[in-house]
């Protein structure tokens, strides 16, 4: 009981529990995120220990005893030797050659340019609106026809990668790294304006800015294959099918 009340024991228990929970998560958490989470929890524990003098003393008591008591000499030597050995082991481990490419910070949704050229014409992405969306309120039949056009375009050109249900799991999807975007995910098209999607569809992977590492997206450039209206129509379809409304500021 006395052991459980000790702040050092409590902190170690929390840290180990947090580590166990984070390691149990599936799919595995990226190492960068795991390290960050553990660091924050560690800082939190530091705050917890030092917030009261009594707890701080409770935390240091076993460490102090370890450093000065004669009866703990073997344990002291064990710890003092284990620390540099662990540090050396970690250093050696991190220096081992690996086949894995280094971790990268890829910007998933890079900032679009203000203006793009599409089939020889300038389109201002800041002001561009989906011209077919206006029909939703005024001409429901025409709107349904546009969505239908979008559906046709999608299943002729896009579903192989983005999937039947727009979840980024089409038959080709597993061959790509990074995987095609999952439109059902709340972190993708639900966060974006329609003009952004127009840019991404029209210009594809080759049109990505440097921070998104051009060439790492297999998305083709659809300019020249799809007309402007077809692109706007497929955008309508994506939002209608997923149920996500596009980001607007009106």
């Amino acid at each position: 009981m006395r052991l459980i009340r000790n702040a050092l024991v409590q902190c170690l228990a929390v840290l180990l529990l947090a580590l166990a929970v984070l390691l149990a998560v599936r799919p595995p958490i990226p190492a960068s995120l795991l390290t960050f989470y553990l660091a924050v929890i560690g800082v939190g524990l530091g705050v917890y220990i030092t917030a009261t003098t009594e707890r701080m003393e409770s935390f240091w008591r076993p460490l102090h005893a370890l450093l000065i008591l004669d009866r703990l000499r073997p344990a002291r030597w064990g710890v003092l030797l284990a620390l540099p050995v662990l540090a050396a082991g970690q250093t050696a481990w991190s220096l081992l050659p690996t086949r894995q490419a280094p971790a990268t910070l890829r910007v998933i949704h890079p900032a679009p340019p203000t203006q793009i050229r599409f089939e020889g014409r300038s389109i201002n992405l800041r002001e561009a609106r989906n011209p077919l969306r206006a029909a939703k309120a005024s001409e429901p039949r025409a709107f349904a026809a546009h969505v239908e056009t979008g559906r046709r375009v999608y299943y002729q050109n896009c579903f192989q990668c983005h999937g039947d249900n727009l979840a980024g799991d089409g038959p080709f999807a597993h061959a790509f790294n990074p995987r095609p975007a999952n439109f059902q995910d709340l972190g993708t098209i639900a966060q974006l304006q329609e003009s952004y999607l127009f840019w991404r569809i029209a210009k594809g992977g080759p049109g990505l800015p440097p921070e998104s590492a051009p060439g790492r997206s297999a998305m083709p450039r659809w300019e020249g294959r799809l007309s402007e209206e077809e692109i706007w129509a497929v955008i309508l379809f994506l939002y209608e099918m997923t149920g996500h409304p596009p980001r607007t500021w009106d």
């Binding site: 998560v25 799919p27 595995p28 958490i29 990226p30 190492a31 960068s32 995120l33 960050f36 924050v40 894995q100 490419a101 280094p102 971790a103 990268t104 910070l105 890829r106 910007v107 998933i108 949704h109 980024g168 790294n177 990074p178 995987r179 999952n182 995910d185 709340l186 972190g187 966060q191």
Partner: peptide, 29 residues
Amino acid sequence: ATPHSLVVTPEEVARMGGTHHKVFGVLGV
């Protein structure tokens, strides 16, 4: 502080099945 765009290795992307983590990805927005 959970980022929307994670720092990941290609192997981690493959293990996660995409660039977003299925559990912690929702914390990035």
